Amino acid sequence: MKIRVKICGITRVEDAVTAADAGVDAIGLVFFSGSRRCVSIEQAQKIVHALPPFVSAVGLFVNADATEVNQVLNTVPLDILQFHGDETPAFCRQFARPFMKAIRVKSREDIQAAAEHFPDARALLFDAYVHGQFGGTGQCFDWQMLPENLPCAWVLSGGLNEGNIKEALAASGAAAVDISSGAESSAGIKDAIKIRALMRAIRAQENTENRF
């Protein structure tokens, strides 16, 4: 089974091209001013324009209002929206785009509740809960909390890097991963060597017999 990979927090054209050349399925653009990885609309336009066919552009928002989201959508050709704040299902679905909803996991109950509340999400993204922060923390959560048979597509995130990616995939059975800080030399600056090493580790894990 092919493991889908998104590299999030892209701020430079060259990093998007490197990620695409390494074989990622999607790149993430952060439109949240509270993030060190935030991009302007102009930056985002240049990055998306440089992507080859079939690499998706994902726009990440945190508690934005609808006007802000629509302003980005009117100027940047995003394929998927990713909501990382306290957005409701009705808010997420109003933009006529596939969306992912990020869940900062504290307990197994958080996971089950999200699957019930966001049945029309393209996927749920499970990230570590860190008080006062909305993602990109480099922290992991307990992968054993993930149920084996969730009734929805989901993405594993939170502190993934070359050193733990194989363990994370084996423990969780994730079919998709979202990596940000683990692919960086500094916040928002991706590291080509780390990206390629991550992709090699992920592709090697696809060939193991212990995945479920």
Rank of each mutant, 00 (worst) to 15 (best):
F83D: 12
V76S: 11
A102K: 10
L51W: 09
G158C: 01
V39Q: 15
N149T: 14
R122I: 00
V76H: 11
V17F: 11
P52R: 15
V30F: 08
Q133R: 07
V76R: 11
I165D: 06
S186M: 03
S181C: 06
G182C: 03
A197R: 14
G138E: 03
D191F: 02
S180W: 02
Q133M: 02
W143F: 03
Q139H: 07
A176S: 06
H49P: 00
R108L: 05
H49I: 07
V24I: 07
F31G: 09
R4G: 01
A102S: 09
T208K: 15
S180N: 01
R200I: 15
I10K: 12
E206N: 09
M145I: 01
W143C: 05
D110I: 10
V58G: 08
F126R: 05
C140P: 06
K194Q: 04
L125E: 04
I195N: 08
D25Y: 00
A90P: 07
V105C: 05
P151T: 10
A66L: 09
A115L: 03
K2A: 05
G173V: 07
G34A: 13
R211D: 14
V105E: 04
T18A: 13
P89S: 13
A19N: 08
N161D: 08
D15Y: 04
A153T: 13
I193V: 06
S172C: 03
L150N: 05
M199R: 14
R4T: 10
V24N: 13
L198R: 09
K2Q: 12
E148T: 02
N74W: 06
I47C: 10
F212L: 04
E162C: 05
R211F: 10
G136I: 01
D110G: 08
P119T: 10
P77V: 14
F99E: 01
F61G: 14
R36G: 01
